[in-house]
């Protein structure tokens, strides 16, 4: 093998790679944020006493968690236009990742809600708060703090899924890596750098979340 490592092609376009990475982070951030909000409501539906709410939310979560995210992305981008919903690449991807995240995050939140002390809800009601107030002021903040470890695992996973945006030509990191490769053929160097960028970013995210955990997590 006379392949001599030459990183010039990668450094030359390094700014492209970074812009791709930043786009990926933005996509992840938006999707996870939206997914968390939706996930919170779905989680309450999963534990509600209303049988219909429980069934619908349960079906949603079970179905989405068993379908590859690639199908969801392709479905939204390629199939939905045929019923009139035409979205651009980025919006399609965010839509897909949001739906996907919400299902996973809802499961985490559901576990968190179930592990909360039942007496807390009644204590809140006893002080005169309505159910919604009790949830908002007491239960949800406590639940969020207790699920931080599980949540951070999910977030990292969802960030890695932003690489799939490349499949519908969204200009994120993986997309640019392939683009660079078509011009320079320096595949070993480019994929090495790209992997390191992903791994590094995951590490930073994990580290940051662990710091948050240290500050806010509720000891069992």
């Amino acid at each position: 093998m006379d392949y001599i490592l030459n990183f010039n092609a990668v450094w030359r376009d390094f700014d492209l790679l970074i812009s791709g990475l930043l786009l990926g982070l933005r996509l992840a951030f938006i999707s996870i944020l939206l997914g968390s909000v939706i996930g919170l409501f779905v989680a309450f539906a999963l534990v509600s006493r209303n049988k219909l709410l429980r069934s619908i939310s349960s079906i949603y979560v079970t179905v989405i968690r068993n379908i590859p995210i690639l199908i969801i992305i392709l479905f939204i981008y390629f199939a939905l236009p045929s019923v009139g919903l035409l979205l651009d690449k980025v919006t399609s991807f965010i839509f897909a990742l949001t739906i996907y995240s919400a299902a996973y995050i809802a499961e985490v939140f559901r576990g968190g809600l179930l592990s909360l002390n039942k007496g807390l809800f009644e204590a809140g009601l006893a002080t005169g708060m309505t159910a919604i107030q009790t949830n908002r002021i007491i239960l949800v903040p406590l639940m969020l703090r207790s699920v931080l470890p599980a949540l951070s695992n999910n977030f990292i996973s969802l960030f890695k899924d932003t690489s799939l945006a490349a499949v519908i030509a969204v200009p994120e990191l993986t997309y640019y890596t392939r683009k660079i490769n078509t011009e320079s053929f320096r595949v070993i160097e480019s994929w090495m750098i790209t992997s390191l960028l992903y791994v590094g970013t995951c590490f930073v995210i994990a580290f940051t979340l662990r710091q948050l955990e240290k500050r806010y997590a509720v000891p069992k």
Binding site: S163, L164, I188, T194, S195, Y198, G200
Partner: peptide, 16 residues
């Protein structure tokens, strides 16, 4: 490996 997206693993395996 766990920090790398699967898509990158697939593409790397194929091209590298």
């Amino acid at each position: 490996i766990r920090g790398t997206p699967v898509l990158v693993l697939v593409l790397s395996a194929f091209y590298v």
